[in-house]
Design a protein around this nucleic acid. Structure first.
Lengths: 236, 236
DNA sequence: TCATGTGAAGCAGTTCACAGCG
DNA sequence: CGCTGTGAACTGCTTCACATGA
């Protein structure tokens, strides 16, 4: 169907485009996609990998939607934002869609990650399989406590905070995980952003306002736990 | 203002209600509140505690909204769902609002929590300060691996999965954290739900469909990391 | 006067329903 | 024929703007 660009502004046929299979994303600005959609794409990819493991080679939007506990229309709408991956009357090719979604999420390359704050949570995340292998690689940690510096008790080398600029540069880390107390989170984020880190996953219980050039995602683990507490019926 | 019940169905004055300060929540079904609102209430509460620590005793919706990176109208709308906590022309009383929001989230009582899966992440969460003290208390862990059973290497006593019914009963645990691989998550959830656990925070990378009587919240840590990877500009 | 509380308006996300196409 | 892709309808969340009341 070769619709590679400018659907809305130019409904013309667009003949002669280089590859019909090109991701629609190449032109559509990444910023125009809702983070809700992006998060669901993570689920789809996860499910596709599971299906691949089970030897399933074709899947319908209805099938995928059941696995992810969503509506089939939702799945189709989400996928359609990035290209025409399916075959009408048939469904989606599992390994093919898997590869395309990995590309959409930029998981077809390795992202080097540093962890700022090697306490309880930071150390656990340094060992976390999902953050070590495949598309992410934890390459270094930082901690203010001199006792933690070195490579002894930790799965990764740990440095002092003032080493951030050098280590980030030398490892080409583009992402960071902030796992410090609330009081040092803002300074840590500023330091990482300054050093050239482009995205930070913040586990500290503060809302960090984004600094230009360095995206933040705040993920206080208390929040989902408190959500569950809220809905817990008091009648017992 | 004494509006304790049935705002929409009965716009009448409702004189003679017992306590003007009663939470609106007592009547409004908890289920009618959006989880987005609930999540923001967690942020408000966190911020209020911070303000209390700084000795601030009054706050406006505008002030709170800046701390949480939201609009002031959003803050007012959210708070108004649970009662009339503010004073017009003045703002909100910090310790008072803190107490009322803690009540809304049911954080004015202790929730006993068990952890199912004492691997890397499970063990870290067992030590996580936010889950141990205040409103949550991790009371026990479970693991299939006999080497982990006991109290030696872990901050909490660890039992075999078949002990779930007994331990949940004896500890009166109402919440659980699932920190097992995807393949055992479904069975673990079923086991916990069966034992009387009312809410489960699932860290396993599967969407668990909710079982009656036991709410689930899925929080795969890969998802926010992959979201950041998505928005990471490939131009570098 | 000033900031809350709240209808009304605006916007975003989801679902519907069917045209399009293999 | 069956399932995708997609405008249109719908639902729900957020923002606006102002009446309300200390």
């Amino acid at each position: 169907m070769s619709r590679t660009r400018a659907r809305l502004s130019r409904p013309e046929k667009d003949i002669g485009s280089p590859r019909a299979q090109e991701l629609r994303l190449a032109d559509a600005s990444r910023g125009s996609v809702s983070h809700l959609t992006v998060n669901r794409v993570s689920l789809y990819l996860r499910s596709l990998r599971q299906l691949t493991g089970e030897g399933v080679s074709r899947v319908s939007s209805e099938h995928l939607s059941r696995i992810c506990n969503l509506s089939a229309a939702q799945v189709r709408k989400d996928l359609a934002q990035f290209g025409e991956f399916g075959v009408r009357g048939v469904g989606y090719d599992v390994p093919r869609l898997e590869q395309q979604l990995a590309r959409v999420l930029q998981l077809d390359r390795v992202h080097n990650v540093v962890i700022y704050g090697m306490g309880n949570l930071g150390t656990a995340l340094a060992r976390f399989p999902a953050f070590n292998g495949g598309s992410f690689q934890v390459v270094a940690g930082f901690d203010r406590d001199p006792a933690k510096i070195g490579s002894a008790s930790s799965p990764i080398p740990v440095f002092a905070p003032q080493e951030v600029p050098r280590v980030v540069r030398e490892t080409s880390a583009t992402m960071a995980i902030l796992a410090v107390p609330a009081s040092s989170a803002r300074a840590g984020y500023a330091l990482l952003a300054e050093a050239g880190v482009r995205a930070v996953l913040n586990f500290a219980p503060v809302v960090l306002p984004a600094v230009a050039g360095c995206r933040v995602k705040n993920v206080d683990l208390r929040v989902p736990l408190e959500e569950l507490a809220f809905y817990d019926q008091p009648a017992r």
